[in-house]
């Protein structure tokens, strides 16, 4: 696994694992603006264990998954009293707080970042992306998954129908944390390095946008979002380079990434106006599965 295409594929797969980590809370109606922070928990757990105790890959992965889950569990347990906008703020504050702490801890490399000796190859990351997808697919087929979707639609009625809304929300958030921990560990081992900048507030924004723009009604939404927003800028990479570097302060590398995020922002705004439910919806998926004609007949309700 090497070269430009291989590297891109691995980045895509890391994004897919993280997209599912953010998708699980969002699927129960909880916006997570601190997704990258839970990834940082996993990355630094693995990085620290590997750098200090020379722990091999498999136990590090398990440890990252566990710390990610524990952090998410405690966080959601404490914060679950608060709902709605408070939860969004709390996840955001958690992300800011955690990066602020990591910068001050010398054992984690501070602002210099942490070198990680253990390594995983790209195919491991790809394998885990597939695994994350498969597990989410199975989870959403269970009664727990059905309860998650019910809560996403109407939490009050879900509670009255016998669903323990609080428990399901904490559970989904914790599973998301575990997945983020795994993604963080893979990140640290693949790049042999972790630094706070990769897990800052902007990274959390991008992750949430991947998921919401992909669509949260089906489990394929996060993949679609991750693929779209990882690959489309690459496809247009050559075009982006030719876009004007307006203003006075631009350097060539800067222009490329800036245009990429400006495009992502513009697509986000346009999507929220024209298609706020995301690229892929259940009805859309139904149309793909059964053919457009069947779906139309279903809609008319013969």
């Amino acid at each position: 696994m090497s070269g430009y295409t291989g590297g891109l594929l691995v980045i895509l797969c890391l994004n897919i694992v993280m997209a599912y980590a953010v998708f699980l809370p969002v699927a129960t109606g909880q916006l997570n603006l601190g997704g990258a922070a839970f990834q940082a928990v996993g990355a630094y757990t693995a990085g620290y264990l590997s750098a200090t105790y020379d722990l091999p890959v498999v136990p590090s992965l398990l440890a990252s998954m566990a710390t990610g889950a524990v952090f998410a569990f405690l966080f959601s347990l404490l914060i679950m009293r608060t709902k709605s906008v408070y939860l969004v703020l709390a996840t955001f504050a958690f992300g800011q707080f955690l990066t602020g702490v990591i910068i001050n801890v010398d054992a984690l490399g501070g602002s210099m970042g942490l070198s990680v000796p253990a390594h995983v190859e790209g195919w491991t990351v790809i394998l885990f992306a597939g695994l994350a997808m498969l597990l989410t697919l199975i989870l959403m087929q269970t009664r727990f998954g059905l309860a998650m979707r019910a809560i996403h639609d109407d939490d009050a009625v879900s509670e009255l129908m016998g669903i323990g809304v609080r428990g399901v929300r904490i559970g989904a958030f914790t599973l998301g944390g575990a997945l983020a921990g795994v993604a963080g560990c893979l990140y640290a081992f693949y790049f042999n390095f972790c630094d706070v900048q990769s897990f800052d507030a902007s990274s959390s924004f991008y992750l949430l946008l991947f998921v919401l723009l992909g669509g949260t009604q089906t489990i394929w939404g996060p993949v679609i979002g991750a693929v779209f927003f990882t690959l489309v800028p690459e496809v247009f990479r050559n075009v982006l380079a030719y876009l004007p570097a307006f203003g006075h302060g631009a350097t060539s590398g800067q222009v490329d990434t800036s245009w990429r995020f400006i495009l992502l922002g513009m697509i986000t705004i346009a999507m929220m106006v024209y298609r706020p439910e995301g690229i892929l919806t259940r009805i859309g998926l139904g149309a793909i599965w059964h053919g457009v004609g069947l779906a139309r007949r279903g809609r008319q309700g013969t």
Binding site: T142, R143, A150, H152, S158, M161, G162, R282
Partner: peptide, 30 residues
């Protein structure tokens, strides 16, 4: 107040949730 993004049968299946016992039943694919 039916769940708008769930199909008819999925809405009806939500009614079964109250009879679910234990984590294993919760995590068995339907």
């Amino acid at each position: 107040r039916l769940m708008p993004h769930l199909s008819v049968v999925e809405n009806v299946m939500i009614g079964q949730h109250a009879r679910t016992r234990g984590i294993l039943e919760l995590l068995t694919p339907l």
